[in-house]
Every structure is written in C-alpha cells, then in structure tokens.
C-alpha cells in the first residue's frame, strides 16, 4: 500500500469530522482574522491525530488562527490541504511549514473566486429565479423544498468532497482548482438561470395580458421591467446604486394605486 493510502486510511475518520466542522467555518467571522477561528477549529481533529503532543498541537493551531478567508463551501479544500501538509510538517519535511503558509495564502483568493462565482453569482440566482417562478405559477410549497434540496446537494456535497480532494492533492492542489467540474457547473447553472429568467419574462407578459387589460397590461409589465432595469444601473455623478428593492417598492405603490382607482384589476 502506498504511503498516501496508508495516511488517508489513518485519517479517514478525522477527515469526516473536519468536513462536518467545516459547516461552522464562518461562525466567528470578523474583520480581523476573517474565517481563521472556524478554520482552526475545523482542522483540530486532524491535528489531534497528527500531533499527539498537546503543546506542539497548540503551536500549530495558533499558526492557523492568523487570517483565512475563502468561499464557505470551498474552504474545506484548504482544510484538506492543511491536514496533508501538517502531516508533512510533523514528519519534518524541509520547508513544509513555509510551503503550507504560502499555499493557504494563495488558496484564499482562488477558492474565493471560484466559489463565489459558482455559488453566489451562478447557482443561487439560477435556483432562486426557478423556484420563485415555480412558486408563483403553482402556489405550492414544493418549489421551496426542491430549492433547498438542490442547493444542498451541490453545496454540502462540495464541502464533503473538498476535504478529500484537498487532502489527496496536498501541495498539488492546483489540479483541484483546474478541474473542469467548476467551469461546467457554473456554465450549466448560468444557462439554466437564463432559461428561468426568460420564463419569468414570458410568464410576466402572459399574466399582465390576462389581468383584464390586454395590451395595456403588457405595457405596464414592460414599464416595470424598464424601471427595475434602470434601478440596477449606476445612476448619478457619484455612481451610486439605486437599490432595486426601492424600485420594486415604487412599482408596488403604483400598482396598488392603479388597483385602488380601477376597483380591483390591472388596466
């Protein structure tokens, strides 16, 4: 059996515990050390196994409490890398400590960029549009249930797999970041989200046309689209953003007034 497989088997239970603890990586998020406290606490089960001596373990833990930040779901990759490199440090590998510090610094930016782009800028808006539209169309609670299940299938799956992948890759973690899975998942989410956004537009046109006013209703729908679009555009000389929520509030007030004056329906 290869040295890696022996090591992976020895730390199998600890890696699971690290993955579980990674769910609290942001618990003590702060403007100074960012996610570092959560990161240190998460890898502690692995450190316990690697460093039986309490004093040495505390020293290594302290090194991990300085500063760390990444996308919360992908932080587990860095945890896996840290465990693998900690084992090398414990074996006395030359320069391993310096290499780990450098790697974690580099990973902060990469894991943040990949994770934020996948989860916050692609997966969540895509799922949110689809679920919101499905809820509006069906009036059922099921879109919300499917939303939570679909999100967690990806997000918690990445969390669990991240420790394993980071641990297997160690200093060669670049190959995890270059995996086509990230680009594929992002592309798929964005295409699905574009389909859902288009469907929301089509549904809006159909609803406004059927609300009793025909073309008048459709014109109101286009006016709403134009207003919330403009609200998302930088306005004013200082480039401030007019929050779309305020635009929505204006829309609701106008629609309410129309509703009030016309006695119950859109014109």
């Amino acid at each position: 059996m290869s040295p890696y497989r022996t090591l992976a088997r020895r730390l199998k239970g600890e890696r699971r515990r690290v993955a579980l603890r990674s769910t609290l990586v942001q618990a003590v998020w702060n403007y100074d050390s960012l996610q570092a406290i959560g990161f240190g606490w998460a890898i502690l089960p692995g450190l316990e196994r690697i460093r039986p001596d309490v004093g040495e373990r505390a020293k290594r833990l302290e090194a991990h409490l300085e500063t760390f930040n990444a996308n919360p779901y992908l932080a587990s990759v860095a945890m896996g890398v840290a465990l693998r490199m900690e084992e090398e440090i414990a074996r006395g590998a030359a320069g391993a400590e310096r290499r780990l510090a450098r790697l974690l610094r580099a990973l902060r930016g990469s894991l943040g960029a990949i994770g934020d782009d996948l989860f916050w800028a692609s997966w969540r808006p895509a799922l949110g549009i689809a679920a919101a539209l499905a809820a509006l169309v069906t009036g059922s609670v099921w879109p919300a249930v499917v939303y939570v299940l679909a999100w967690n299938a990806l997000a918690q799956g990445v969390r669990a797999a991240g420790v394993r992948a980071g641990f297997a890759a160690g200093a060669g973690v670049a190959r995890v970041l270059e995996d086509p899975f990230w680009a594929g998942a992002r592309r798929g989410a964005r295409r699905g989200g574009a389909f859902a956004a288009g469907a929301a537009f089509g549904a809006g046109v159909a609803w406004s046309a059927s609300a009793g006013g025909g073309w008048g209703g459709v014109a109101i729908f286009f006016a709403i689209v134009a207003l919330v679009w403009l609200a998302g555009t930088r306005v004013g000389s200082r480039g401030r953003l007019l929050p779309p929520a305020f635009a929505f509030l204006v829309v609701v007030v106008i629609l309410g007034a129309i509703h009030h004056w016309t006695g119950g329906t859109l014109p």
């Binding site: 549009i129 929301a200 549904a203 829309v251 629609l255």
Partner: peptide, 13 residues
C-alpha cells in the same frame, strides 16, 4: 405575480 416576474427576469439577466 406580474411585478415579481419582472423583478426575477431583470435580476436574472
């Protein structure tokens, strides 16, 4: 429904 559909479509794009 109309207002929310407009908001979702714009946010998506």
């Amino acid at each position: 429904q109309v207002a929310a559909a407009a908001m979702a479509a714009v946010a998506g794009v």
